[in-house]
Structures are given as structure tokens and as C-alpha cells.
Amino acid sequence: MTIPAQALRHEYLRHNKTFPHVWCPGCGNGIVMGALLRAIKRLDVSKDEMVLASGIGCSGRMPTYLDFNTLHTTHGRALTFATGVKLANPALNVVAIMGDGDATAIGGNHFIHAARRNLNLTAIIINNSIYGMTGGQYSPTTPFGSQSTTSVYGHIEHAFSISELAVTAGASFVARATVYHADLLDKLLEKAMLKRGFAVVEVISNCHVQYGKRNKLGNAVDMIKSYKDQAITVAKAKKMTPEEREGKITIGILEDRDMPISTEEYRKVQERAAKLKEKA
């Protein structure tokens, strides 16, 4: 089912909010937003039930424009607020949207513990390999050797893989797409939102303004196209050596497992506690 963009805009963009938005033309954030709205539409989640939480960064501005219960939190902390919302009202459908710096530098501790805790939450991380909003400083996913405003002599630290981190930390569902692979992204977001448990979708995205330009990666279109060439499927990646995988982006579902969800486990705790209280 293709959903006309205009219908999506009419249904989900805030009418009483003054645009334009803060994003640069061509920014990958818009593609992720479109994919998220299509997933919500397909899953037919009511707007009143949807809570979209974000941290601080360019990505963090997304909730401002969308007609849900929206929560623009502090830098790195989106998942902590989301945890409170979800536990207080488990009926709500809570999605957190974060940047790479947001989720894995300042918010890294919250991220791994949210994955370990396995609440029924969806986390979308827009990984553009840079601190976009603050002007292009290096982030935990900035590649070794690359340029940023705080690594003009070449970056000397190693990037880590957000998705692998999520798998190791215990997330129920982990998937990766790029902003080139918009159809795949739609499907992965849909699956993530349906998943019972902590679901992570990492989206490789272009910040041509702060990252691309400095590293001679061309404009938005060039960067987005480059993801097409770099992408390999999970199945293909499995057959390759680590050396062969160098410079590639593995896309698809990296983990999908069923584990006890702490929201539901806590219901059992409540029942146990109430029974004991009655006896006492």
C-alpha cells in the first residue's frame, strides 16, 4: 500500500505549528520521519496513543512537528523519560527518536540499560556519524581518520556499531537501514513497532552539511547514493570476512528474539505484592 505524501502530511503534521522546520534541505531526517509516519499509518496506531520522545540534536526536533503526544527531552535522556511514560501507562505506544551522539555518547548508559531492561519501547537512532546540531564535532560513530570540527588533524578514535551494541546489551529486535533504502526502512520500523520488547532501528543517514562536506563525500544526493553501493544484506554479510565487510553497511534484521518484557513482568510483581499485602 503506497500512502500519498500529501495524505500523510495532512494527517500527521501539526496544523497549528509554524513551519519551516530547522532541518537543512536534503537532510536524511525527513526520510526517516516519512518512514515513521508511514509505519504508524500502516499499523493504524491512533494519534492519541502515540508518544514520540526525542533527545537534543537535529533529530531531536522531529516530534515538534508531529501531531502526537510529543516529548522533546534533554540531550541523551529520551529513553529515561520514555521509560517513565511507558511504565506509568503501558497502553501507550512509545517511540524514542535519537541522534548517534544523543543515544550513544551522552545517552550511552541509558541506551544499553534500556536494551537490557527490555521494556516494550521502540528506539530509532539516526546515525549521521556526526554532531549535526552543534556544528560538526565528532561523535561515537565518526569513522577513524575522518574530519570534524574537533578532529581537523584526522579522527584518532574508533567508531562503534550501534546495532551490535544493542544486540549485546539485550534488545529484542535490532535492525539497520539507510535513508537510501526507504522501502526497507518502512518495513523495519513497522516490525520494530509491532515487536513486543525493546526494538532498535539504526538508520544510516546523511549530514552532508556538517559531515559530508568536510569529508568530501559530496552533496545530499551523492551521500544517499553511496549508501546503495555500500549496503550488503545480513545474509551476505554472514558469508564475508571482517576484512571484506570493511566499509560496508549491513542492512536488514540483525536480531529478532522473544524475551520476557519488563512491563509485563512488572504486572506479575504487582499481583504478587497485592496478594501478599492481602494476606498480611
Binding site: A53, T80, L87, A88, H113
Partner: peptide
């Protein structure tokens, strides 16, 4: 809920309060 640190604890109570 016991959180991973106090930053998270404070974030969670704000979230819970917003949820009523």
C-alpha cells in the same frame, strides 16, 4: 524502578508524571 543512575531516575519520574 531502579534506574541506571540519578539522571535517569529524574527523567523517568518526569515521564511518569506526564503520563498522569
Amino acid at each position: 524502578i531502579q534506574m541506571e543512575d540519578e539522571i535517569a531516575g529524574m527523567g523517568a519520574i518526569v515521564g511518569a508524571s506526564l503520563a498522569g
